[in-house]
Design a protein around this nucleic acid. Structure first.
Lengths: 211, 211
DNA sequence: GTCTATACTTCGATAGAC
DNA sequence: GTCTATCGAAGTATAGAC
């Protein structure tokens, strides 16, 4: 037991810097947070920050790396997905929605999601990540899913890419609505509401396209 | 002919500051633009800015006032809307989409739209405006529209608010996709694409709900 | 690993002469 | 209405002692 004691007895300083930076970035945006402020909250001097991170940008990078890692851990394996479709579109939609929720439903991940939504414009790295991993990739997955449903004669033979957009654009809308517009609302309340909205949307879509 | 001559012979300095600030804010975000930079681009000293605007924030306020005024000018009068519904949902959707496009389809308004998308999180005034005028109000209008269509037996008697979200959330998605994620793309190219996407979406929705 | 001290830059804004 | 000159605050980052 040498140092690392200031309020929280065991957490390493680097981790404290991570947590507090995330907290502040998510609340005020990256540019609006100063290194001084982070240091003050952590309980050390500004200069000590630079013992753990090369600069302010490096803290953000570390947060984003953590986010990307966490997301990569929570995807549904492809084989499971295919088996799930067999149980019918309703079950698949429901399970899919729960997977997304799970990616957001921790206080830490919620903050990072918010940070991403705030900085998506200002930061090219985050923007590119969003486009690729949170928009294009899911759209492709859903296109394949609808393609499979069509082949199994579960739904009408419509353009699977159109269906992917019809389904998934609503999720992006809910994301935008909460993280950009409605953040003052209670998180859990909104999540329950969003889950219900997404279920309604899936039900509406399914009713429109089922055989 | 006293002052106001620097490249552009007739435009008042206050207007130049407005135009150049908008240009810079839309390109880099409000916080990333300094008063010095605006002054340099206009061709005057920083201190002269304060002869025309109280401070930097006041420039943004003036831009937003202009935006709100422009939007208020381009709405469809209620009576016209009702008459338009009579011509059938297809015509109404098409005309509605053209109205939205018209609100964006000038270089100046496009920049303000972009500025709004960038600063919606960082600026409470812009965020509240977005929520009220660009989300809640249109949703209400569309809810009424679907309600009327139901009463006229043009479409199935579904929940009109659900239909409003089904229709309009896609527009918000397209907004988000372009202004936040895809801005590097050519504006006109994307607008044509978005118009087509919105038409496809309307067609899909109509097919699902028509009697 | 943290401290003090400080370099260096940029920012928004004001005072006062012309 | 524009200029010069300048202020004070805040920002990131580094050097070197402990």
């Amino acid at each position: 037991m040498k140092n690392q004691n200031k309020g929280n007895p065991s957490k390493p300083t680097k981790e404290k810097i991570f947590d507090i930076s995330l907290e502040l970035f998510a609340a005020k945006g990256f540019n609006a947070v100063s290194v001084r402020e982070i240091a003050r909250e952590v309980g050390i001097r500004e200069s000590s920050i630079y013992n753990h991170y090369k600069n302010k940008e490096a803290i953000l990078d570390t947060i984003m790396d953590y986010f990307i890692y966490q997301l990569s851990q929570s995807g549904l394996p492809k084989d499971d997905a295919e088996a799930l479709i067999e149980q019918g579109p309703e079950v698949f939609f429901e399970t899919g929605a729960k997977m997304y929720i799970k990616q957001i439903n921790t206080p830490q991940m919620e903050k990072i999601w918010r940070l991403v939504s705030i900085e998506t414009y200002h930061n090219k790295k985050i923007r590119d990540f969003f486009k690729k991993e949170l928009l294009e990739e899911p759209i492709n997955v859903w296109e394949n899913t609808f393609q499979m449903m069509i082949e199994k004669k579960m739904i009408k033979p419509l353009n699977p890419r159109t269906l992917a957009y019809e389904y998934f654009s609503f999720a992006i809308f809910l994301f935008f609505e909460y993280f950009v517009l409605e953040y003052d609302k209670d998180f859990k309340t909104y999540m329950d509401l969003a889950q219900e909205k997404m279920a309604n949307h899936a039900e509406f879509l399914l009713e429109a396209i089922k055989m």
